[in-house]
């Protein structure tokens, strides 16, 4: 069983969580002119690395908070988790 340490609740089973996507993607700045290429990159382009990956997860069956996870995509080892307002 994969366990994830929620920054609010502590270690819980992965069953309680939901994956929320790549945490490294930055949304284009609000109010700025955005080219089609930039928007396309933001919406669709993902690196899909083999190794360390920063991700969003949601503790959907627990405290319902979003947080960040640093995970190895090949071993599933989780190195660190952090709140959204913390550095990972």
């Amino acid at each position: 069983m994969l366990e994830i340490k929620c920054p609010y609740c502590g270690k819980r089973s992965q069953n309680e969580f939901s994956y929320g996507g790549d945490a490294a993607v930055k949304r284009p700045e609000l109010g700025k002119e955005v080219s089609d290429k930039e928007w396309d990159n933001f919406v669709y382009l993902r690196k899909n690395p083999r190794g360390n990956h920063r991700e969003f997860w949601h503790h959907v069956a627990g405290c319902r908070q979003w947080f960040k996870v640093l995970r190895d995509t090949s071993t599933h080892e989780i190195f660190k988790t952090a709140r959204l307002d913390e550095e990972l």
Partner: peptide
Amino acid sequence: CAGTVFHGVT
């Protein structure tokens, strides 16, 4: 107390 799942039910 804790929020969790039971056979997939929150």
